[in-house]
């Protein structure tokens, strides 16, 4: 068997288009997941009460259901349940955001808890307004603490976009599958997209690992 580079040369605009779809769906989902995650995180930070229990339930729910099951469920069931039309792309983003929200909530929580308690108390004692405490005292160490986990989650989200092929969203994997069945050049297209995914995801993993090691060296926890 031989590897037919011409196939890739001929169809590379389609492949790059698929990669672009994967990237923007990831970006949009990450943005929505961050918003959901922030709300859930605030709920989780309450020591007790309904908000805490709801947040815990949300996190457990969306971390325990497989992403693919969630994607299919949102695609088939959500429109039926509310009797509304939801397109492939919208249901993809809803599913990934709901799933991502649970992970983002935990990432945010780890970030907030990285803030040294004494510093917040000191700022409170000085009478610094809450907003400024958040911006100057809470956020910087929290971001440092969160970055590795955040980038790591970004790689998970990128990998999860490949699952959207199964509901017909024309992202990278879907494009390769259709091209493959059209030309029978499965070898070429699946190899090409594997390389593409790797080129996008690998640098992020390397960054996440290095950042985590740096953080551990500096803080030890």
């Amino acid at each position: 068997m031989s590897f037919d580079y011409n196939m890739i040369l001929r169809y590379y605009p389609e492949l790059l288009g698929g990669a672009w779809v994967a990237v923007w769906i990831t970006a949009l989902s990450l943005a929505c997941a961050s918003m959901i995650g922030a709300v859930v995180c605030i709920g989780k930070l309450q020591k007790h009460g309904a908000a805490n229990r709801l947040a815990t339930a949300y996190i457990d729910l969306f971390r325990s259901i497989p992403e693919i099951v969630l994607i299919i469920w949102v695609f088939y069931c959500l429109p039926l349940l509310f009797d509304i039309g939801i397109g492939r792309y919208s249901s993809a983003i809803i599913a990934l955001s709901a799933y991502g929200g649970a992970y983002m909530a935990e990432i945010f929580r780890a970030g907030v808890q990285a803030v040294p308690r004494g510093q917040v108390e000191a700022a409170n004692a000085l009478g610094i307004p809450v907003f400024h405490i958040a911006r100057r005292v809470v956020v910087p160490p929290a971001i440092r603490r969160m970055m590795p986990a955040l980038v790591n989650f970004l790689t998970e989200l990128l990998k999860a976009t490949s699952l959207l092929a199964l509901i017909g969203v024309s992202e990278l994997t879907y494009v390769a599958s259709t091209l493959g069945s059209k030309t029978f050049a499965y070898m070429e297209f699946y190899t090409a997209i594997a390389v593409l995914y790797f080129m996008i995801i690998f640098p992020l993993s390397v960054y996440a690992r290095r950042a985590e090691r740096r953080r551990l060296r500096r803080t030890g926890n």
Binding site: T155, L158, K159, A160, T161, S162, L163, A165, L166, T173, A176, S177, G180, Y186, M187, Y190, T191, I193, A194, Y197, F198, I201, F202, S205
Partner: peptide
């Protein structure tokens, strides 16, 4: 294997 999606690996193994 950690930096490519499982689905792509599966499709590669099954079809390529």
């Amino acid at each position: 294997f950690r930096n490519t999606p499982l689905l792509v690996q599966l499709l590669w193994i099954h079809f390529a």
